[in-house]
Amino acid sequence: MYDFAFHKPSSLSEAVALLADPDARPISGGQTILPALKHRLDRPSALVDLSGIAELRGIRREGDRIVIGAMSRHAEISRDPTVAAAIPALARMAGNLGDTQVRNRGTMGGSLANNDPAADYPAAALGLGATFVTSRRRIGADDYFQGMFATALEPGELLTAIEFPVPEKAGYAKMRNPASRYVMTGVFVARGPMGVRVAVNGAGPGVFRQAEMEAALAANWSADAVAGIRQSPDTLNGDIHGSAEYRAHLVTVMAKRAVLDAG
């Protein structure tokens, strides 16, 4: 790791000012950026630690939405009674990603700003039709995700909170890589004020919606409704862990399990 200056601002405005330097990078839980810096994949002039900013913390219900501060750690989200009551699938997701030690440090905002194609939260955010609140604006989930490690966030723009509409039903299922435990293929399904939405993660270069499954579940909310739908492997990832055809097969299997998980 190359050395860098370290700043720990106590307000959002201070953090935004420090991040005006194009070579400065934010650090939240550090579970992705620190391994990346060890590999010298980046050489920031400064790290701006977001953990001292009260505005980025807290989980609360606001009407028909659950608002999760970007600095909320996975372990906090998994144990939060508000999340567990309103969106149990999201609480289970937060408690079943990475490992205990990663969950004690990693944050939802960090994961969603990074948008790793094999991360879990992008499926929940796209599947629930979340709204991304930033230091500048609000961005809908359909506009936020822009492919592998790419989001609508501009340089210096910070995610401050994620708002999830409370669904009637939501479920998630994933097949994990047996070694890395990252998602090989996952499917998040939701029904409620967001309509019926099906989001697929892990399988493609970025999280995407499965329109055919959405239509089938809108007509008949059951695992059987998606059992016959085949995902095309054409745009999916193939690598040493699994071919695009295998991942396409998993989309159907995980979609069935996700509907069962939702109940």
Binding site: G30, L34, P35, L47, D49, Q101, V102, R105
Partner: peptide
Amino acid sequence: SQCGACVVHVDGESVKSCTILAVQ
């Protein structure tokens, strides 16, 4: 941050001490 040989407790929570900066 995979093997866990470096796990310590920071404010009572287990963390991988190879994946947290001293300044943090």
